[in-house]
Design a protein around this nucleic acid. Structure first.
Lengths: 326, 326
DNA sequence: AGTTCGACTGCAAACGTTTGTAGCTTTGTG
DNA sequence: CACAAAGCTACAAACGTTTGCAGTCGAACT
């Protein structure tokens, strides 16, 4: 029913190849012919069938975007930025949600492989070896985790964690709890490593809790474990857990920041809206989305380029962190 | 490089058509042949090329999902539910963001048309006529707005608005302001209509403000217009505007709900997290996403089925609404 | 024994494009 | 005026599938 290249060719009295070139290699066709073809194409509402084109060119002009949880407020800005950036380059975006399940991740990459020119793997929970293996089937760019031999864009969350610990130290806190995130997360390990280092450098005590699912409920559920550590300040794996924790603490009659300071990570839209507003480490998620798309489209075919883009993070001081109670 | 159906055929010593049937019509091939083919296919890592398949069958097993703004917290739960539901039925989902621009909407539907079996159009800003026209190119299901002659899933936001007005009336409020949303929004008109009716029935005064962009900033910016109306309670187009408004009021030294009550719509994840927590009308977004996918896949080909699914809404009373100050 | 049937498999055309090659004009050059 | 070059267009094969049709073969029926 929809017009094909053949319809356009017939109507405008030229061969299909001429119509094809009118769109994909304009300089090879006589301007007047081209004008005529374009006119008829317009009139018939012709649009090239990208799937058919992909079949022969091998380029689909689609990309895949795989995230752990669309509803986690960390991701929407990244998705939005990536989609918009990709569309500006005439690419469409498949979005899929793994529910934090590594098995689903793998299946998804494989299922998408033939339909896309590459996949953005955001915060994957798979092993490096698995990712490495998948990258033989389809170009990958990893976000939020470096994988040896693969292009990746990461945010310097170690620096952020250090800044957070230093901030808390300056406020007089001597014992900090680290509310850990999910097991497979590279960010989680990185935060832990860096916070440990920073705490040691400041002569502080650091108690690590976790691993935990990176959700609000999980943060709330950890409120009493946090209390039991005796820490006066908490650095949480992400904003979601931080606000959950604050809620949980409130329910136990503890107020933030008067009795305990809480610092989040990600600076999601949330953090400005909660009361108290959340001190947090800002990660440039939109920029990460754009950078990842760029990397994917840049090295079109020469995969296994091992570029690594690192984006800086920043500590945003708001109301959930305050002086250590005595 | 990746294995094709021909590779599998060669290796397992059968014709390509047999391999094809092994996957798409198993009952037509001898179980033992089938087993052998499957084994070799597995071994070669063969996966049918869906684009090639689509070319001949006309079914892509993809759907498009077009929303106004991915970062608006209303949408992620809908996207997540729709994607997960679709994938359960072996469909992949293109997600695209229009930035509230009707022109982009149209372009996007057209661009996606050949690559999908149908498009979910969420909260479109286009005219009915435009939507109607697009539906001739590709099956559409509209979400959050009824369009004559097209399948749609809507949420009964009129009922929600009525409940909200009644709730405020019971709290003693006699003058309510309606903080309107974007121009093209059907929901906006519906809310307005229903709130007006309910206010009249209760003998209340209702002042309508707007149209406004449906964002937090826009809500905040309207704080003084709201004050000038002299209303003691506000019903906002959505949660985002409601929390923005509360912020704006706070900045003017007005407290919620003591001096003014504020009610939102959508019950986004936000509304539980702000202080005060937000009284709001809950819209079942995840259910809407699933229902829309079902409708799209159900009437596969017989478009122009004019089914309309209406989902109920519910008033969630939290802390941002209180008794009318005297 | 001949026929019919069913189960299975192969053949080849088709889906809507792109692209290398070859052919035809026209123009420029010596 | 002949010839080459340049500019343009047509032809046809290819991409990886599906699918209607026809063919083969053995079993079951008459």
């Amino acid at each position: 029913m929809p017009a094909t290249i053949r319809d356009v060719a017939r109507v405008s009295g030229v061969h299909v190849s001429t119509v094809s070139r009118t769109f994909s290699a304009p300089h090879l066709v006589n301007p007047s012919t081209r004008a005529r073809v374009l006119e008829f194409a317009e009139q018939l509402g012709y649009r090239p069938n990208r799937a058919a084109r992909a079949l022969i060119t091998g380029r689909t002009h689609n990309i895949g975007l795989i995230v752990a949880d669309i509803a986690n407020p960390f991701f929407p800005p990244l998705i939005k930025a990536a989609e918009s950036h990709a569309r500006g380059r005439d690419y469409h975006v498949f979005v899929a949600d793994t529910n934090e399940d590594p098995g689903v991740e793998e299946e998804l990459v494989l299922a998408l492989a033939k339909q896309v020119d590459g996949v953005l793997l955001c915060s994957p929970r798979m092993s490096n070896a698995q990712i490495e293996k998948l990258s033989r089937d389809v170009p990958l760019v990893v976000v939020n985790r470096p994988v040896p031999g693969l292009p990746a864009v990461i945010m310097d969350v170690a620096q952020g964690a250090r800044l957070a610990v230093e901030h808390l130290t300056m406020l007089g806190h001597r014992h900090i709890a680290l509310l850990g995130g999910p097991r497979g997360s590279w960010n989680n390990r990185e935060i832990r490593r860096s916070a440990t280092l920073a705490a040691r450098a400041a002569g502080n005590e650091l108690t690590v809790l976790g691993p935990n699912p990176p959700t609000e409920e999980s943060g709330a559920a950890q409120a009493d474990s946090v209390l039991r550590t005796g820490a006066t300040a908490v650095l949480a794996y992400n904003d979601l857990m931080a606000v959950g924790l604050i809620d949980g603490l409130n329910r136990l009659g503890i107020t933030v920041p008067d009795q305990i300071s809480v610092v989040g990570i990600d600076d999601t839209a949330l953090s400005r809206r909660t009361r108290p507003t959340l001190t947090t480490v800002a990660t440039p998620t939109a920029a990460a989305g754009r950078a990842a798309v760029d990397m994917l489209l840049q090295h079109g075919d020469d995969r296994r380029t091992t570029a690594l883009v690192t984006l800086q993070t920043e500590l945003i001081i708001r109301d959930s962190s305050g002086p250590c109670p005595k």
